[in-house]
Design a protein around this nucleic acid. Sequence first.
DNA 1: CGGCATCCGGGAAGATACTG
DNA 2: CAGTATCTTCCCGGATGCCG
Lengths: 226, 226
Amino acid sequence: MELEKITKKASRSYDDACGAAHALDLIGERWALLVMRELMLGPRRFSDLRAQLPGISANVLTQRLEGLEAAGIVRRARLAPPASVQVYELTEWGLEAEPILLHMGMWGARSPQHDPTLYFSPASLMLSLRAKFEPARAATTDVSLEMRFGGESYTAAVQAGRLTTARGAPARADAVVSGQPVTLIELFYVKTPLEVLEGQGRLAVEGDRGALLRFADLWEMPPKAG
Amino acid sequence: MELEKITKKASRSYDDACGAAHALDLIGERWALLVMRELMLGPRRFSDLRAQLPGISANVLTQRLEGLEAAGIVRRARLAPPASVQVYELTEWGLEAEPILLHMGMWGARSPQHDPTLYFSPASLMLSLRAKFEPARAATTDVSLEMRFGGESYTAAVQAGRLTTARGAPARADAVVSGQPVTLIELFYVKTPLEVLEGQGRLAVEGDRGALLRFADLWEMPPKAG
DNA sequence: CGGCATCCGGGAAGATACTG
DNA sequence: CAGTATCTTCCCGGATGCCG
């Protein structure tokens, strides 16, 4: 009776040597991959993660961060003084999980049941750009954008067939666009005309509007499955 | 009171437009991705799936198959008479989830906590070969292998820098190797000498042993993370 | 025997409240 | 702001039983 408790393995494992099964042991719990998604563009503090992940509760976020830290995927860091706050960041190996997220995103977006009008986080937008970027299509494009989402700036730039996406404003921006991430999805993928989005007050553009349109031309919606 | 039950969304969703989040709504439940793994090499019947997934219970397998079928990832089929048994197979879109599994496998196998001595299914072995195949390294190799795992044959062949992996025996095999999948992992990745594995009675080879060794030379263990 | 439906116990997830 | 404590709900895993 007592022995059963001791023998019982700590936290359900698949006990499968397959690399994918072990990955699921580490990141297969609910919310884990979405926490990693939010960390893909750089360190985040606890409450920022909570804000970007509507629906997660504080105790679950605590548990996931603990688990990811124990697995060597996430590490705690402290920003340099004077802003010496604690943040969570992906380790190098954690960052290398990005292809999993990108392939999942491309595959999941093709589901017949996928609803692209729900909440969309800035990190999701930036990762979707990375996932669907086609270098050949962008060979002759040269654009640098600043995207502002509720006070936070992001960079999306294309030069010499290469895409740069990052948190923070670019050194030089051809255009600055403000709105919600989901609205940029509409512009880039659904191909809603820019004037319509501006007319609805959902998007504001400063600078070179042509640059924004050339950037938008680089993306398109993948075909639905089935 | 009654309304709450009706309004309550069917089975917890992330309510997130991110493609990866939606993918997790569909295949993020426990065992779902491993069921798909076992279907990646072709249709399987219920009890074969159970046998290849030690630890899954019948009711959970039923639920996962129902969920995957409702999502358009799996479909039921009936084999041609006289063997008119019901099998489960991936839809075309379900098959396209393979890159997710391959990247997860490569990433998970680099975990410091990964234990490659646990159970290993034939499907996992074949998918790991697909994941880690390097065409440049195999440009001049020409090998066709039959692998026998407990009465079931699999094909692994390399020709003109291309890898073919499938369930079923090849038309022509340079060598036929019998054993457990995990033993081939030792031969291909851990680089345990063939004579040792044979001496331990864990592997039996018929035909051209040099062909098996040339094939083994095409793979190597990726470096651990951290 | 294959393919489920049903019931039960334990544990993880979700919601809310609370604290340093 | 960054979590902890508590309570409830739901899912997972195991056992049993039904039925073609």
